[in-house]
Design a protein around this nucleic acid. Structure first.
Lengths: 227, 227
DNA sequence: CCAAAAGTGTTGAAACTACACCCATGG
DNA sequence: CCATGGGTGTAGTTTCAACACTTTTGG
């Protein structure tokens, strides 16, 4: 029998919008609900915040538990507090968005009831998760332009074409190859490796890595990224 | 005697970072705490979220109760969830930032224990409110550049010099008068009024108003503001 | 030798920066 | 008539967008 205190404050959860990139499409990781309400519907991975953990910790813990993902890029998105967003009782949810590299991404698929969906064809979602997802996608699109988030979705070594493909997939627009390369290299944040990417019957591509330390140094001096 | 449920979930509050502009400095509205902990310290206005209100509603209600402010521009900022941010018990706080026009701002001063402080000289704050304030200021600075937020801090009728002064106060840099005017007028979002601003022994200034409807229309077509 | 993606420069247009003087008013 | 802030244009530089062909490889 619940006492009055159960109803005196909202429940608090975290939900994660996890993005991945397979080289073609931008994707999102969803889990299938095992319980009512919305049993068998797809939903964002997430769960209740414990009293002894921060919000970020809760998000990481839930991600690990439900999808097996660890060490992902995680950033708080927005807190959703509509009164009726959960039919059972008042639940406020702190939403996060996460970016995972392809290596980690494939590991996640092996786990439990988690599955990747291209963002263009998301199934119906539980609760207000469609709204949360839309907010996350908008944020990713907006931020990609002036923050080097993209590298969190690529393997540590990547080609310029892969980088461009990612920008095109996320922004939904075609980009000019020469202009893109000029800009991307102009920042001096991509270091060429002594390694080529061989992939099929054509000229092999130069591999690069992103230099995050240098980026942080530049950012402190009021530098802007902007691709 | 509290039952176990009191401790099974964090308490949830909202806190508001309210900015105003007096023509010279960017200011923040603080309230003096009447109770322990941090009794007599300055703090951000805020309070507990009720079960039957959204987070936005809670923020507006608390603002009205503690400062008398209504009809302000309000936007969710970030949710703060450090485990020890409140010494009494686990409290998670959804922070908002608010922008108020000078007319409303003076009304607020008359109210209760609320007072405006220039952002350059904020007193010590309760809890983690200094951190919240810093996040709000950073967000305001960042967003001002590509979102027409500034008009929420000016009276409905304003001169270009007032607008420029606001940008300079928020961004902390001097701007070139001619370039600023060119850009500001170039968007075609400022409509000149048949009215001048008389103020002292010099040429009176043209008054303008911002056209929010037109802005929304342009934004839908993928238009970017950026001053 | 063919298909397929990698790689590379230039040019015209637009936007940005820097900069100095006259105007209208109140006292 | 003087002090004060309002208001205006241009030139040099930089950045941006558009655009097509050669290179390297595997099959």
């Amino acid at each position: 029998m619940p006492c009055v205190y159960e109803y005196s404050r909202p429940a608090l959860t975290v939900d994660c919008v996890v993005f991945g990139f397979d080289g073609g499409d931008l994707q999102v990781l969803l889990t299938r609900r095992g319980l009512e309400p919305f049993k068998d519907r797809w939903a964002l991975p997430g769960g209740f915040v414990h009293l002894d953990e921060t919000l970020d910790e809760a998000a990481r813990r839930e991600l690990a538990e439900e999808t097996g993902l660890r060490e992902v890029f995680l950033e708080q998105l927005h807190t959703f507090g509509a009164v009726e967003r959960d039919p059972r009782e008042r639940v406020v949810s702190v939403a996060y968005f996460a970016l995972v590299k392809p290596t980690a991404a494939t590991a996640a698929t092996d786990a439990a009831e988690a599955e990747w969906f291209p963002v263009a064809s998301i199934p119906p979602l539980a609760f207000d998760h469609a709204e949360i997802f839309a907010a996350a996608l908008a944020r990713l699109r907006g931020k990609l332009r002036y923050d080097p988030l993209g590298f969190e979705l690529l393997p540590p070594k990547f080609t310029l074409s892969q980088l461009q493909g990612l920008y095109e997939a996320v922004l939904g627009t075609a980009l000019d190859k020469r202009n893109f390369r000029k800009k991307a290299l102009g920042f001096d944040l991509l270091v060429p490796l002594n390694e080529k990417h061989r992939d099929g019957a054509h000229r092999p591509a130069q591999l690069f890595r992103f230099d995050p330390a240098k980026y942080r140094r530049l950012k402190k001096q009021g530098f802007l990224f902007e691709l």
